[in-house]
Design a protein around this nucleic acid. Structure first.
Lengths: 110, 110
DNA sequence: TACTACCCCTTGCTGAACTAGGTATAAGGC
DNA sequence: GCCTTATACCTAGTTCAGCAAGGGGTAGTA
């Protein structure tokens, strides 16, 4: 399929979700993805950071330098109001999509 | 997200499913997709036909000219043994992916 | 001192889907 | 006979997400 283990387009949604509880820096977002999705969805840094910049460029995220929990410089991403709107619509889009997809894939001969 | 309403990579799987009951020509596959997925997943012909050629090139589909139900020339696609194997693994891949995706997207603050 | 974990980034490439066109035939209405 | 609609196939050019494979630098620890 596309790439190795991602259905393209899902990463943006996961990122928005990851920062929905408050500002987070890129590396922490990557860690969260790794933990919650396990080996099923693996996101490389070469995909993660460009995605963050993309979402920032669209105005869905806002970035700000700060200090991480381990006392290092880190760029924190915060969900903008527009980003929260996109998260909401993206969630319902996902639900509709996965519902229809599963329905089709388990359908009997028409 | 990617494109307008597809999660990239799902089309191949849907096509394999569409021909799992027996040979079907491209146009009929498009009609089936339109019917079962409604407006949620819209597949343009400009995406469908290249996808069919792609799957044929991979050896997952075999093509053969024939006559359609409406008495026209049409190219029928049949699932090869390798294609059936791919359908099976694609299905479980989808289940795993959608499970993890939904889990992550509905997760509470960690 | 070396090593690991943390934290950021880019370039070049592949490939799926979109946009926007094109050709041709059968059936049915006028 | 002619026009429209539905059927049935196709391609070229573009966009853009993700991958592979690198890069740099800092804090803490052995």
């Amino acid at each position: 399929m596309a790439g190795s283990d991602l259905f393209t387009g899902s990463l943006d949604l996961l990122i928005l979700k990851a920062v929905s509880w408050g500002p987070r820096h890129g590396y922490a977002i990557g860690q969260w993805l790794k933990q919650t999705t396990g080996e099923v969805i693996s996101v490389q840094e070469g995909a993660l950071y460009p995605a963050l910049h993309r979402l920032e460029r669209r105005g869905w995220l806002a970035e700000e330098w700060g200090i991480s929990e381990t006392n290092r410089e880190a760029k924190f991403y915060r969900l903008t109001p527009e980003g929260r709107k996109q998260l909401k619509s993206g969630l319902s889009r996902w639900q509709e999509f996965s519902r229809v997809m599963t329905l089709s894939l388990t359908a009997d001969q028409p």
